[in-house]
């Protein structure tokens, strides 16, 4: 410690400022040392933003942020795909803006309703290989993900004793309609464990009637617990913190190994959380924009409907 401080002190005395890494690099006597230092061959998003806003450039001004909208508190769970990418090195404000614009346009054409993992849905897509050029599938939503135009959801059902899962892209133009037959949530984020459960848990009739949710009520949470088949399984379910599953009835060694592999500290990892999420201000401004656009498109749609009704008369 003493020798370390002795080495640093004269520098303080000479330069009267703390030596940064770059300063110390400059003092190395190698001729081309600067070029040997690791460099970045891309720009940071902050610098790109700076240049976009710079008065020296002729970049168009961004529209002012909307603040007057009264957005419901759980609005962002209804439209999760509008939020920025969880991978922070893929974010870009202009790309997200243009992508959102496309999404609004598509949402004005077809109705993409509110749904969650655990809801039972019916989807119609145009399919050139089916006899009437259309394909309708009913199933339970076991996963939902993706950001922007690549947002998707997965439906699962059992047809003729065979489990079938189909992944649909929400903004794919071949998608004709999405209907929510039963709106509800489950206790887990992903229901992939239905693959290892008895088939009656994921069997739904194709001629199922929609069950309406009374207006103004909150979305019901189905707290059903699934009894899984005995091992072997597709995944080690005991290692995942599943809430919607009955006791797995395994030997103690499985639970011991699961406890050994578990990472309980990850939920306290603030840096990880920070990297995967955006700050509240940005999130709220996006949600306000989505809310405003939704309000406007709803008005337009109702106008169109009244016009059609008048014509029919």
């Amino acid at each position: 410690m003493a020798s370390y401080s002795r080495r640093i002190l004269p520098c303080f005395w000479k330069t009267t400022k703390l030596l940064t890494f770059e300063d110390s690099a400059r003092r190395v006597p190698c001729r081309y040392h600067q070029e040997l230092l690791p460099t970045r061959n891309y720009l940071l998003p902050e610098t790109v933003e700076e240049h976009r806003k710079s008065e020296l450039s002729k970049h168009p001004e961004l529209p002012p942020s909307i603040t007057s909208e009264n957005v419901p508190a759980d609005f962002r769970f209804v439209y999760p795909e509008f939020l920025p990418d969880p991978q922070y090195d893929r974010r870009d404000s202009i790309r997200e803006r243009l992508e959102r614009e496309d999404m609004y346009r598509r949402r004005a054409v077809i109705d993409i309703p509110e749904f969650y993992v655990g809801s039972i849905m019916a989807v119609t897509v145009s399919d050139q290989y089916s006899p009437n050029k259309e394909n309708r599938f009913v199933g339970i939503c076991i996963d939902r993900g993706g950001v922007g135009l690549r947002a998707f959801f997965i439906l699962r059902n059992v047809v003729d004793g065979q489990g079938i899962e189909i992944m649909y892209e929400m903004y794919n133009p071949t998608l004709q309609s999405i209907q929510v037959l039963k709106l509800e949530k489950r206790v887990d984020d992903k229901l992939y464990y239905l693959r290892d459960a008895p088939q009656e848990y994921s069997t739904f009739p194709f001629d199922m009637d929609p069950i309406p949710v009374p207006k103004g009520s909150t979305v019901p949470v189905n707290k059903m617990k699934v009894q899984l088949n005995p091992r072997p399984w597709l995944e080690r379910w005991e290692r995942q913190d599943l809430q919607g599953v009955e006791d797995l009835k395994l030997e103690q060694r499985f639970y011991d190994k699961a406890a050994k592999v578990a990472k309980p500290w990850e939920k306290y990892d603030l840096m990880k959380w920070y990297r995967e999420n955006t700050n509240e201000e940005e999130r709220d401004s996006i949600m306000q924009e989505v809310h405003q656009r939704k309000r406007l498109t709803d008005i337009e749609k109702s106008k169109r409907k009244t016009k059609l009704a008048e014509r029919k008369r």
Partner: peptide, 11 residues
């Protein structure tokens, strides 16, 4: 495909 168009349908 432009997103203002109607959904794709096959003849």
């Amino acid at each position: 495909f432009q997103f203002t168009e109607e959904s794709v349908k096959f003849a």
